[in-house]
Design a protein around this nucleic acid. Structure first.
Length: 296
DNA sequence: CGCGTTTGACCGGCGC
DNA sequence: GCGCCGGTCAAACGCG
């Protein structure tokens, strides 16, 4: 009954290609596994969620989640600029990960962690992040984490306050991409929000950087979903909260890479069941080898 | 008035 | 060199 973790190393651009390949699944892109490997801040920290929360708070996180069979979770990594200096290192596969390739994706998603992470083609990586020069030097790339979230709202509430600073039309996509910045003065976290043009119900949220502050929205002011949650971090709350996004993490309960805090939609436009019907293995099977299901 | 959004302009990197 | 494109800036605007 083991579920294998799918860790797919895909460059951010490739992540986009995922969409173009009609990958109907929710995905979690851990764009910088390395940060976490180093014991530094990972995505949880990025969003103010601590590791122990996943490990202890629910037995690895997944058990916390609804036991629905959620579609596949794809973890995509992208390393920041320092990857250029570490690309010779073997890609750090997720801890204890048994990376499995999703055959239908294999064209665009590498099996296990690959050199994609290292982004040997620095120009390719640079293209992803047009490092705008700041103070005369290239801005260092931050770890980026992307989520695919099924939601009708573009801007998913994740517990932090964001200010939109730009919107651009995306090539090959009818949906614009929105750029948000954390409103906290000292916090330099940014995120991009766009929709998968292959599945407009899927919102792709890409976080960049790490929050240097706890979520400002922790205050039990929101009567909707979090007010009753005593947790410290909003994302934690939603992690516990039976919102659809959680299911994302339930895909691979054995994951020991931290499930990213679900940028849950406060509007909660969709219901969980609709998102992950148990019969929705069709989606999964689009991504996962059939034998993977047998292992579950 | 403060905060957030909108939107066109601008910048820099990359490919041809 | 030029055009394309992603990303950012900043003024204008809207809202509570």
């Amino acid at each position: 009954m083991e579920k294998k973790e799918i860790m797919m190393s895909v460059k951010m651009e490739d992540a986009s290609s995922l969409f173009s390949n009609n990958i109907p699944l929710w995905s979690v892109f851990d764009l910088c596994q390395e940060t976490e490997e180093k014991g530094s801040l990972g995505f949880m920290d990025l969003l103010g969620v601590h590791q122990d929360y996943y490990n202890g708070g629910g037995g690895g996180g997944a058990p916390l989640l609804a036991d629905n069979n959620s579609p596949s979770q794809v973890t995509v990594k992208e390393c920041p600029s320092n990857s250029e200096t570490t690309q010779q290192q073997p890609p750090t596969t997720p801890k204890s990960s048994t990376t499995t390739s999703a055959s239908p994706l294999s064209s665009s998603v590498s099996t296990t962690t690959t050199v994609d992470q290292a982004a040997p083609s620095s120009q390719h990586a640079d293209k992803v992040l047009k490092a705008k020069k700041t103070n005369g030097k290239k801005r260092e790339r931050e770890a980026r984490y992307a989520f695919m979230t099924k939601s009708e709202v573009d801007h998913l509430e994740d517990g932090y306050r964001w200010r939109k600073y730009g919107q651009k039309a995306v090539k090959n996509s009818p949906f614009p991409r929105s750029y948000y910045r954390c409103t906290s003065g000292s916090c330099n976290v940014k995120k991009r929000v766009e929709r998968s043009f292959t599945d407009p119900t899927i919102v792709v949220t890409t976080y960049e950087g790490q929050h240097t502050h706890p979520s400002p929205l922790l205050m039990p002011r929101s009567s909707s979903s979090s007010s009753s949650m005593p947790q410290t971090y909003f994302s934690h709350q939603h992690y516990l909260h039976p919102h659809h996004q959680q299911l994302l993490f339930n895909t691979f309960p054995s994951l020991d890479f931290p499930p990213p805090p679900p940028p849950s939609s406060s509007q909660d436009t969709t219901n969980n069941n609709a998102l992950f019907p148990l019969s929705d293995h069709g989606l999964l099977q689009d991504v996962l080898p059939s034998h993977m299901f047998k292992q579950e």
